[in-house]
């Protein structure tokens, strides 16, 4: 693995993108996508040979695609799921993604999949464990793995590293890339009391390949990564800082519940252009008194789509 400090691991800045979601299939089959690129949830297409795959094929013919996974479980103490990795590779052969990403997390153990992105104790042993697994995944996929910082709601007493330190060491040891989710930095920073700007200033900027932006929910005692709102001002400020420090990387708006119409989605990510000029949208963090908000919503993956 080439571990030289090439910006973005030599991967391109794709511009502004959105997630490919079933709600917009019909629109995208009949209209120009307008946007620069798309990110797909890999698991939504791995065993899907129906209309979703047809739409994916159509969209991939028009715009670059990036594969973003939620089930690699790179931090799990279960053995790596080699069947899943092969399926991921098969999908990559079909869609020819510009890169493949997943999360610094685990999703379950003892073969149970919680379909959540669970936090790691940030210990030296965890680092060694994840390093070994990232190297193996990169050998299988024959490309660098791009790992995203998750939103977290709890920290472990046993942690001896900050998340930015853990990510930095992981990059140094494996040559993997980073998907910097500035919304997740904001969420975790709010929940754990660290300075999100300090986090962003202290990651290896040359390894950042992509940025995620999204709208979270303030549940009073904590902030939840709900992907169901407009991007709030503090997240936009972190976004601009990250773009300045990285020299410019691909931007992706995540919106996975209460998904708006396509034009509205495109307009939301388009705000990034104004933000880079210092013009921030005045959007407070959405507040909800209800405890039924869901982090990492995934039910959009199960909407039945028909040609």
């Amino acid at each position: 693995m080439d571990k030289t400090k090439t910006q973005r691991l030599g991967l391109p800045n794709l511009g502004l993108g959105v997630g490919l979601r079933s709600k917009h299939y019909s629109h995208l089959m009949h209209n120009d996508p307008v946007i620069d690129w798309f990110e797909i949830i890999s698991e939504n297409y791995i065993n899907n040979f129906g209309y979703s795959r047809r739409v994916l094929e159509h969209v991939a013919g028009m715009r670059p695609i990036v594969m973003h996974g939620v089930s690699m479980s790179i931090g799990s103490t279960d053995p790596l799921n080699l069947t899943y990795l092969q399926q991921l590779k098969d999908l990559a052969n079909f869609v020819n993604p510009v890169w493949i990403s997943d999360h610094l997390c685990w999703t379950g153990v003892a073969h149970v999949n919680t379909h959540d992105l669970l936090p790691m104790p940030l210990t030296l042993e965890s680092l060694e464990h994840v390093t070994e697994r990232v190297n193996r995944v990169q050998d299988v996929l024959q490309r660098p793995l791009i790992l995203e910082n998750p939103s977290t709601y709890m920290e472990f007493h046993s942690s001896v590293l900050h998340e930015w330190e853990f990510m930095t060491e992981l990059v140094n040891k494996t040559g993997c890339g980073l998907l910097l989710d500035v919304n997740n930095v904001f969420v975790s920073g709010s929940n754990h009391g660290f300075d999100p700007e300090f986090y962003i200033r202290n990651i290896p900027h040359h390894a950042v390949v992509q940025i995620h932006i999204a709208g979270p929910t303030d549940c009073e005692d904590y902030i939840l990564d709900t992907h169901d709102q407009s991007v709030p001002t503090p997240v936009w400020k972190l976004y601009r800082l990250a773009q300045e420090l990285t020299g410019g990387v691909s931007t992706l708006l995540e919106w996975d519940a209460n998904i708006p119409e396509y034009d509205e989605l495109v307009a939301e990510v388009g705000k990034a252009r104004q933000v880079l000029l210092g013009d921030y949208p005045d959007v407070p963090v959405y507040r909800s008194p209800y405890l039924n908000a869901v982090s990492n919503p995934v039910d959009h993956q199960l909407q039945i789509t028909n040609g």
Partner: peptide, 27 residues
């Protein structure tokens, strides 16, 4: 699990426990 002034360790675990059920019920 580390607690904070605002939330106990159990309350923090509860975010994940509640989210697990809510997320999969939506599915």
């Amino acid at each position: 699990i580390r607690g904070t002034d605002r939330m106990s360790p159990q309350q923090k675990i509860g975010i994940y426990a509640r989210g697990y059920i809510a997320r999969l019920l939506e599915c």
